[in-house]
């Protein structure tokens, strides 16, 4: 918004398109998402570990009626274990390749430990 007064060559419409592109570039520089947004892998991993444990326990204590309903498959046990594994995979992935916040133009560097979890 601030530096859009510099006149460009061409007609007004050409400058409109270029000005908007400049504006987006400027906003990109000031954007905080890359530096501050938490990593979604933490959320997926956390939720699926919790869901996995709960559903696995439901499978361990499955009643005969539960088993019969699911065609003699202990579906809670298997689904729970699969969810647990998926959750752990996401947490391990996050640990092995943590997000590195890019150097931000407006802020001082975020502490690196932030990303490694």
């Amino acid at each position: 918004m601030s530096d859009n007064s510099t006149p460009q060559h061409g007609t007004t419409e050409a400058t409109a398109a270029e000005r908007m592109a400049k504006e987006v570039e400027e906003l990109e520089r000031r954007s905080e998402t890359a530096a501050r947004l938490f990593d979604v892998r933490r959320i997926i991993g956390g939720l699926f570990v919790v869901y996995g444990v709960i559903v696995t326990l439901a499978g361990v204590f499955a009643s005969d009626a539960d088993l019969k309903k699911a065609q003699d498959i202990n579906i809670n046990l298997w689904t729970g274990l699969a969810m647990l594994v998926l959750g752990i995979v996401f947490l391990v992935w996050l640990r092995l390749s943590p997000t590195i916040p890019p150097p931000s133009a407006t802020d001082e560097e975020q502490p690196k430990e932030n990303g490694t979890g």
Partner: peptide
Amino acid sequence: LLPNGVLGI
């Protein structure tokens, strides 16, 4: 087909 637990999911 789904027992409680997976049904909740």
